[in-house]
């Protein structure tokens, strides 16, 4: 464990909790892509199946359980409890265009052709694009609530910190995993445009809105 991975994990946790609190406090999931949240629930479920087979540390196990629990809680709030506030018309990204190619890629490019390993690879590839329905929704409506942009910023920061973590591990532990790194870099690039808007607008006190 290094400081970059720890702060990355905490940033990830902060993002998840910010989103849950936003929905809970405002009693509304307006502007939130339910599709992205379903994809994240699938990501955590397929990646953390090893909870049942291997124990790494108390930290590792508790974070996995918290991530999975929060992911399903978020999906429940969007599609059940606050369903009336869900903006399905604007959440129109076709997720099959992500899930099917990602599934194919996981079967083709993996470390080991075994059930758990392919699911893990699938989760890594899927995570890298899971935010696309959310970004698509923002580009479609042309705006995002400030709290939603904080959520996205924490999520993007988590990915950026993981890249620093991998550079650290490469130098000090001679450890690297090409699948995780390539997918992680792709994922971080997807946030670049958003980071720019966040710094130039939200941090200056303005609402994030895109030109029509």
């Amino acid at each position: 464990m290094n400081i970059f991975r720890l702060t990355g994990d905490l940033s990830h946790l902060a993002a998840i909790i910010i989103l849950l609190l936003k929905i809970w406090k405002t009693r509304s999931c307006a502007g939130i892509s339910g599709k992205s949240q379903i994809l994240f629930a699938i990501v955590f479920t397929t990646r953390y199946l090893d909870l049942l087979s291997s124990f790494i540390s108390l930290y590792n196990t508790s974070m996995k359980v918290i991530y999975i629990g929060c992911a399903y809680a978020t999906v429940y709030l969007i599609y059940m409890k606050f369903r009336a506030t869900y903006d399905g018309n604007h959440d129109s990204f076709r997720v099959e265009f992500l899930v099917v190619p990602v599934g194919g890629l996981a079967v083709l490019i993996n470390h080991d052709f075994s059930f758990l390993e392919i699911l893990w690879t699938f989760s890594i590839y899927l995570e890298s694009v899971a935010i696309l329905p959310q970004l698509f929704m923002i580009s479609k409506t042309g705006e995002a609530e400030t709290i939603t942009t904080h959520y996205l910023f924490c999520l993007g920061l988590y990915r950026a910190l993981y890249i620093v973590n991998w550079i650290w591990r490469y130098y000090f532990e001679a450890f690297f995993d090409l699948i995780a790194i390539v997918a992680g870099v792709v994922q971080t690039i997807l946030y670049c445009d958003f980071f720019y808007l966040y710094v130039t607008k939200v941090l200056k006190g303005k609402k994030l809105s895109l030109p029509a």
């Binding site: 464990m1 991975r5 994990d9 990830h12 090893d50 291997s54 790494i56 540390s57 590792n60 974070m63 996995k64 991530y67 470390h111 390993e117 893990w120 993981y162 973590n165 591990r169 490469y170 001679a174 450890f175 690297f176 995993d177 090409l178 699948i179 995780a180």
Partner: peptide, 10 residues
């Protein structure tokens, strides 16, 4: 270098 999945990462 080890080219394997980082099992300790989240």
């Amino acid at each position: 270098c080890h080219r394997k999945r980082p099992k300790d990462e989240l």
